[in-house]
Write a protein that binds this DNA or RNA. Structure first.
Lengths: 339, 339
DNA sequence: TCAACCAGCTAATACGTATTAGCAAGAATA
DNA sequence: TATTCTTGCTAATACGTATTAGCTGGTTGA
């Protein structure tokens, strides 16, 4: 019933067990052997620790560069979503599962205010180092912040490929290049020879990869591949495709793909125009309209990020840049070309 | 650019500027006024700081704050759900929002394995005390664990009312009693006089409250109120209601309410039998079938839990047991009684 | 009988910063 | 000329833990 005020410290434990603070620390950190503390003493101290539920202050431990079995999770946006089918949740599901398996607790950096829709990684009161390392998630990440993090030697892994000139950034990304190539080949196998890429194909690495995979496959297979900006109405894009003779739309952004597919459906053009979604083909689909394309292995990416981060923290050798293959989704919107 | 070995500290700055470490700290933290450091000294030190790019170690800065600004979140089940409309997410949404507002980070205790579908609060190596305090969420909580936590003086708040004989358990719960009373009154206003409570009305506090609110209101208004166990097929419950002359079903469990409402709908009995869901009336409803009843203010409960916990941690006086009013949901399944 | 040795522990210090108490030298006051 | 006040700073300490050096009292060896 002892209402202890404030945090329990090693000094408290020591007093309760009738030993010195140093003894407590030694026992907790395996230095007891070397210091020749008797097993009786050890047991006595451990009993007190268990009875009180004492855990070392993570701050004080980190001052000595010790670990706390704590993985940070930094998201540029709120972790817990309002929207139903949220983009982040599957990643976090995987992260949670793997953290549990490896015995880590998760530290969500929610103390940084979300400003203009995103959080800042660095602040005066940055608490990143409370965690042993950190997983960084977010569609748009700040390259400079990441480079600085890497330069500081802080262990972290980003979800999504990030390249930097001066620093090697550890990541778990998706292999957009290969899967896009495969989809182009599949379109080819279904008789299509004129493809239209809907998107900018520039900006984030993931976008460049899609465009590159598309271009390469088109070239290899001797097809015709055009590109059009996505910032126009679906109907206009469809007009362009029909006018140019394209029979498949490769959509960079999945939302856009769904809009296009619905428009195609409404206008009963599905026999003349196929739609491929380069991402979220499964999760964004409607029951009545299954998009063709691919889906990121989000949960597995989360798991892999934890494994990689854990390896980095524990100084085990590990591949720091990993690309996982997205799963192709057959769906209904990529069809055999009709003559 | 001199990559000095180790981190640049205030001591280094002090040496370079020819002052004491304390002076550097004071200048950085605005204590310079009070310590009457001359503006020349201030400028000299600031110049050195700018030249070297020194930044204070945030960890060391926070060492002698009282707490670590860390709130634990303990869930008996995994935090990140697979299911779409998850029970916990709204709580966590509120918790995250309020944690952000108050400058707390969140610690998820994922290192405890989920066994038989739930986690254990206490283990040999409980890490609860890593956090300054903890929010406990879960439908079924272990009373003994909570009582022990309270006895230990560890700051925590549970979501959901928990009563204990010997310890006062802090909670943020829902006021089932009042809202159930109100719903009975509403049924009465709509002409109903014979009500059937579907559920056990015992077990968790929240169930007892519903039953009590129901019973009291029925007595006060001079109505007839029966009770039937929920563990039978919807059709059977409906038979019983019709046979006994009841015209409203008060369903303890929202899932059951939905099943009953659908059955009523299918059998075209909705003019003769109303259904009230005592919980999740909004979130569980189908677009085609809006349940009548009430909905917990989950997000607000999460927010309130953080506020209460924060107050407890900081030793501010605060109401430790709070009941929030659920929102009533009109819906389609509670109708005027037809003669 | 004294040195050497060992088991079993503690004192002391470091980590990097914040903060309080207080010191030294000169200026103002009586 | 002695006292108080003021200015401008530093010494000391605290935060909680990790680690190293070293102390004490007993046993062994010669």
């Amino acid at each position: 019933m002892a209402r202890t005020k404030g945090r329990l410290t090693q000094r408290d434990i020591a007093k309760l067990a009738g030993v010195s603070q140093a003894a407590v620390s030694l026992i907790l950190n395996g230095g007891a052997e070397q210091a020749r503390l008797s097993s009786e003493t050890r047991e006595r101290v451990m009993a007190v620790i268990q009875g009180t539920g004492y855990v070392a202050d993570p701050l004080a431990r980190q001052m000595h560069k010790k670990g706390n079995q704590l993985l940070g999770v930094f998201t540029y946006e709120p972790v817990f979503p309002n929207a139903q089918a949220d983009f982040y949740t599957p990643f976090l599901l995987g992260i949670e599962g793997e953290a549990e398996r490896l015995g880590y607790d998760l530290l969500l950096f929610t103390s940084t205010p979300v400003e203009d829709g995103r959080r800042k990684l660095f602040r005066k009161e940055s608490r990143l180092r409370l965690a042993d390392g950190c997983i960084v998630i977010g569609r748009e990440q700040d390259r400079d912040e990441l480079a600085r993090l890497a330069a500081d030697g802080y262990p972290f892994v980003t979800i999504g490929r990030r390249d930097d000139d001066s620093e090697q950034i550890p990541y778990v990304g998706a292999d957009y290049l290969t899967v896009t190539r495969d989809l182009v080949r599949r379109a080819h196998d279904l008789g299509h020879s004129h493809l239209l890429y809907v998107g900018d194909g520039s900006g984030a690495e993931s976008l460049m990869d899609r465009w590159q995979g598309f271009s390469e496959a088109v070239a290899t297979l001797g097809l015709t591949g055009d590109r059009t900006a996505p910032m126009v109405a679906p109907s206009e894009i469809i007009e362009r495709a029909l006018a140019s003779g394209a029979t498949v739309l490769f959509c960079e952004v999945a939302d856009g793909a769904l809009a296009l597919a619905r428009e195609v459906d409404t206008r009963r053009l599905s026999s003349r125009l196929s739609v491929v979604a380069m991402g979220s083909a499964a999760s964004l689909s409607l029951p009545s309209l299954q998009l063709s394309g691919f889906e990121l292995p989000r949960e597995e990416m989360g798991r892999q990020a934890v494994r990689t981060l854990s390896a980095i923290i524990e100084n085990r050798s590990v591949e720091r840049q990993i690309l996982l293959r997205p799963n192709t989704v057959d769906g209904q919107t990529l069809r055999k070309r009709e003559q």
